[in-house]
Computed example of a mutant assay.
Amino acid sequence: MKIGVPKETKVHEYRVGLTPESVRDLVAVGHSVLVETQAGDGIGASDEAYSAAGASIVRAATEVFETAELIVKVKEPQIGERAHLRAGQVLFTYLHLAPDHAQTSDLLASGVTAIAYETVTDKAGTLPLLKPMSQVAGRMSIQAGAASLEKSRGGRGILLGGVPGVRPASVVVLGGGVVGFHAAENAIGLGADVTILDRSLQTIERLQTHFGQLAKVLFATKTTISDLITEADLVVGAVLIPGATAPKLIERRELVQMRRGSVLVDVAIDQGGCFESSTPTTHADPTYIVDGVVHYCVANMPGAVARTSTYALNNATLPHVLQLANLGWRQALREDPYLRSGLNIHDGEVTCEPVAVAHNRKFVSAEKALAL
């Protein structure tokens, strides 16, 4: 199979779809890989490294899109990239379609088969291709929040862990999944006063067992959230409904009740954000202030630590890329129900129910779309 790796074009996105090591594994079993020149610069992987692994280096993204049967990316295709997608081609990347009407419309019009990393499942019912980036984003949310609390950036002027004789920052983590767990762990490690909220009793029990007295773990009611944010210095939004638009946990009107200079970090911004006042930002201009509250809403947080993120992501995605290439995408999707759960769009139809609901479009099951 001809596999294409374009250079990412999202603002300050430095990750790349395949590492040279992944390319070597694909070439070793007979596949050809086209890599756009400088695609790996952000992770320190030169064109020479890709060539040595067996890839063909091409000068323009258009050549990648025109030639490849399978496009492997990291972030959703930007508007210029979507113009080059075509029927019969497979796109394998993060899509986050629920809040993105323009991308959804373009992918449907192109006829492409789009498989989203974030909805691929496994036998345990987890999201294995989302997990590594959730781990990175969870840890980064505390770094970003700590920096945003600095006075020069609009924050309260608070050191997250405090110092002897001075209170540490109060950190509230909304959601106890992968993002929330790693956010809490980092915040605790830095000495913050941490509270985690979730609605799953099983998750609450697991978190309480793990953290013990190092963190408070509470059931997430609207009242509890409203009460806690009034005293919080940093709030991390870490909720996820797979494939769907994120629920709004903090309303715009509640911001005036929060401390001036407190910080909201919305890790759910890829899925529309879990704060009503959230708007996507970039690493070039990561924060803005509403009612005195600093908002950090970067939609590709792991892109800032591109090398770590790319290798972590490839560890999870490479087996699926090999599966798609070795079996052919149709057979791979037919044989593997967990990979098939990643199918969001096929031949002009929406095959992910939460996406169909978010856009008020007809839902066609992946099984029906593939005529299984």
Rank of each mutant, 00 (worst) to 15 (best):
T104S: 07
T279G: 12
E335Q: 15
A144G: 05
Y117T: 04
E254Y: 06
R253P: 09
R206Q: 13
A87K: 10
P6Q: 06
G261F: 04
L129Y: 07
V33I: 03
T121S: 03
V294N: 05
L249V: 12
D25Y: 09
A68W: 07
G88D: 12
V29D: 15
R156N: 14
S51Y: 07
K131P: 01
K7S: 07
V120T: 05
I188L: 15
D336F: 05
G273S: 09
R259Y: 05
S141V: 15
V293E: 10
I188D: 13
E13F: 02
P168Q: 12
C352T: 08
S277H: 03
V16K: 03
P168D: 08
D233Q: 14
M140S: 08
S134W: 07
G145A: 09
L159V: 13
S141K: 09
P247I: 04
V11Y: 11
R82N: 09
E66Q: 13
S170W: 08
D198C: 08
P128Y: 10
G177S: 02
G180H: 00
E231V: 01
G303P: 03
G177H: 01
V267K: 00
T209E: 15
L85D: 07
V294S: 00
E63P: 14
I289W: 07
L370C: 00
Q257T: 11
H12W: 14
P242V: 00
P247D: 09
H320P: 14
R199D: 13
G191W: 00
A325T: 14
I196L: 00
G161S: 11
V305K: 04
L207K: 08
L107N: 09
R260L: 13
W329A: 01
T113Y: 00
G125W: 00
E118D: 07
A124G: 11
K248Y: 07
R334V: 13
P20R: 04
L108K: 12
A238M: 09
D285S: 14
Q202C: 11
V11R: 15
V355T: 06
E48G: 10
V235K: 09
G161F: 06
T195C: 15
N344M: 09
E76C: 04
A109F: 04
L214H: 11
T67P: 12
A68Q: 01
R252T: 14
M258G: 10
T245G: 11
L264N: 05
E349A: 15
N360R: 14
G54N: 00
L372M: 07
D233T: 10
M140K: 13
A316D: 02
E81W: 11
P99D: 08
Q143R: 14
H31A: 13
L201S: 06
G125E: 11
E205N: 13
T119H: 09
I142R: 00
D198H: 02
V256M: 05
L313Y: 04
T121R: 05
